[in-house]
Design a binder for these strands. Structure first.
Lengths: 229, 229
DNA sequence: ATTACTACTAAACGAGTAC
DNA sequence: TGTACTCGTTTAGTAGTAA
């Protein structure tokens, strides 16, 4: 993760790029750079030394200034920032939505539904994992979470088709891949039938979440829903 | 110009955007933000206060965390950074090339050429100004400047077509719009005929540069050539 | 002209803590 | 839980200056 040191370096790199140092070797004095950075000549000098140490730029000194070229590593950093910004700015949806809920024990019907062969096959295909036979039930506590959950309906989801057997019809299931407690990959599944209201989440994962995360009724759990672009 | 204060704010904004706060109101605790910024909870709190003061974000406090939405001003800043980066990363050429040379008195032939009606009309049309009838001659001093000048040949230029009159032929003139001494807009014109070698620049501008910039022979002048994308 | 060191000043940070 | 204040500590920034 980018720390505060890196920010300054990244911005210095950006200014150097604005002076053309990413396309060609440019003659840039510390005084001139300082002006662009709104800082002192000494600070600009220090930044350049730091950037050189990091391998982000190459320098060669001449009698009247130094020649600077942004190195591949530096260009890579700028590219990374650019890609990051692009995906943020061009995306229609936020990259993720985090919900928080309290663990409670359900009626065990989740297990019944997700165990159905036709659903199961699709979970493996579309989510990339075979769910542990049981759902983790979470009760949303705050207004914020209920609202945020409602917003999700408008976001793209992984759709698991419904089916019909001799007895009855099984509906479409919308899944939202998610990171549970910042640790386990799983998915939020829309209530298979509306046993629960809008303030309840059902989570599936390749493992037993209660065991894996050592959860008991009443514990709070964070669900970070990752929205595809 | 972005100062060091703004860098941190811009990066904080970026992190908030990564949490979806540019698309929706997101619940983000100062503790969580601090983690993403690799800093302390107190610092994250301070940043949020500063961002709010700037009008870059809107906040509303709840009993368990605060709801954050990046405001239009904030989104605008991110957009600005993004556009800036995009034009840098996607451009084939550096945005500008700065040359430095020493003023000297030429043979006065520049005035003769640029005064030609056919050229003059094109200067006005293509450069957007009627040049003062005379060129400022600059002698490039360092190796770097001579090399940089040579690179220019490969970059896009404003082309002023040549012509023929009863006496002789007047060749094509390549012009590079430029900022002279960070103050006056003008253009570098390729030696109309090669009186001078590669280490000489001829500059035109809507005003008399010698007078406007109070230049005398031997003075050093900076020419920032602005390369179109 | 430059760059960049040393020594000092200013600012940012974060521990403790109140709310 | 949360946020954000005070205040001592750490870090970044700059003036002066040598090379």
């Amino acid at each position: 993760m980018t720390d505060s040191q890196e920010w300054r370096h990244l911005f210095t790199l950006l200014k150097l790029a604005e002076m053309g140092a990413h396309k060609r070797t440019a003659k840039i004095s510390t005084e001139y750079l300082a002006e662009k950075l709104v800082t002192s000549q000494q600070t600009a000098s220090r930044y350049l030394i730091e950037l050189e140490r990091k391998g982000w730029i190459k320098r060669s000194m001449t009698h009247d200034g130094c020649l600077i070229k942004i190195d591949d590593a530096g260009t890579g950093e700028l590219q990374k920032l650019f890609s990051n910004l692009r995906s943020l700015m061009e995306a229609a949806y936020p990259p993720s939505v985090t919900l928080e809920g309290t663990v409670f024990t359900g009626l065990g019907e989740g297990a019944y539904y997700i165990g159905k062969e036709y659903y199961l096959k699709q979970f493996v295909e579309k989510l990339g994992f075979e769910p542990y036979p049981g759902t983790l039930n979470l009760k949303l506590t705050s207004d914020y979470d209920v609202k945020a959950r409602a917003e999700l309906e408008a976001y793209p989801a992984v759709e698991v088709a419904g089916f019909k057997n001799e007895d009855r019809t099984f509906g479409l299931v919308k899944c939202y891949p998610a990171l549970i407690d910042n640790k386990v990959k799983g998915a939020l599944v829309t209530a298979l039938r509306s046993h629960y209201d809008a303030s309840v989440l059902e989570i599936i994962a390749p493992v037993c979440l209660r065991r894996q995360l050592n959860l008991k009724d009443g514990n709070k759990v964070k669900i970070e829903i990752l929205i595809p672009m």
